[in-house]
Design a protein around this nucleic acid. Sequence first.
DNA 1: GTCTATAATTTGATAGAC
DNA 2: GTCTATCAAATTATAGAC
Lengths: 205, 205
Amino acid sequence: MVTSAKDKSTEEKILAAARRVFVRDGMTGARMQDIADEAGINKALLHYHFRNKKKLFEVVFLEAAGRLFPKINEIFEADLGLFEKIERFCEEYVTLVMENPYLPLFVLNEINRDPHYFLGKVWKGKSTPRPEKLLAQIKAEQAAGRIRSVDPLQLLMHLLSMTIFPFVARPMLRKNLGLDEQTFRVVMEQRKKEIPEFIIHAIRI
Amino acid sequence: MVTSAKDKSTEEKILAAARRVFVRDGMTGARMQDIADEAGINKALLHYHFRNKKKLFEVVFLEAAGRLFPKINEIFEADLGLFEKIERFCEEYVTLVMENPYLPLFVLNEINRDPHYFLGKVWKGKSTPRPEKLLAQIKAEQAAGRIRSVDPLQLLMHLLSMTIFPFVARPMLRKNLGLDEQTFRVVMEQRKKEIPEFIIHAIRI
DNA sequence: GTCTATAATTTGATAGAC
DNA sequence: GTCTATCAAATTATAGAC
């Protein structure tokens, strides 16, 4: 399909609008009218470029998931020492998500809304996290006596939890811990160093 | 308003149905028809007992939030040592949420959907978490030289993250870590002890 | 209190002119 | 490709009989 410069511009405007609205309101809460308004066009044109709501959502969701998941693999399967992986993961993942703070909750929520759809159409040979290498690496470090014996799966869950949860719970944390937007960003910036340090202290011999 | 025995029974059936549907599909995804079906009645009767969708949702949401938040305060403000608090929080909170695994994602998502509504109507003098006492307690332990110096706020975020996140990310973790329902429950059961142990190792001198 | 039937509204989607 | 106008379907909400 040939795509003129103007086409691309409009489709890009639509996608930018759809990202904002879908990520904010979710698949079920989003309205095609809102997306059209946000893009500065009308609904008919939306349906011309993307046949229906489901298809448009799919593009946005796959793109969102594609931003969050590959990075995990990339680091966990890299050729690095365990501590380096932990440090790099926190540093790079917090940086990544800070640019799109609402992405994790959006993705987790949509996965939860329709796990089957998620498993099927979405997860086909894509970069679904493969934690085996990291888990094996943790086991090896323990066998070599370089770190304390902790269930590798539990350690991985600790790492993911501490890194991602604050973004998922952001509105609640901001209210309950009394953090304004600026302070929240500072706290998350500190976590880049704080989390690895915390983990290292926890598993040192 | 006088409420007969039969009234209560029907309202309770409706609420039970509304809990399931709202928690599963969210405010925007839930359909009144589904709730009526689930309750074994028709839509008209739904509107008779709860004027509209918003009102019914509000009851369900407030109840859900009321299950998750008071427990936090109850433990954080108790008259216990720091380690005891951490241990009790993990133990009791995991137990609590295991009975309603979808509650945290539901509540966090709805808070995110409409933070203003959440702050306003919902959070009026309710048991919103008051972390000051716990934060002060952490500071005191550090000043006394009994634990390593870690930003209390960061430590609190570690604790909340490790305890709650696995439930929020459950469908994703189950897929990406290859855990079936039974295994997930076992892993969470282990976390009751694993998380406090991990934290204690991390902040010991 | 509970039902059937229907109104009222919202919203996704299409037809057809330009 | 883009718009206006409109349809069709889904969904919330109400009227009125029992």
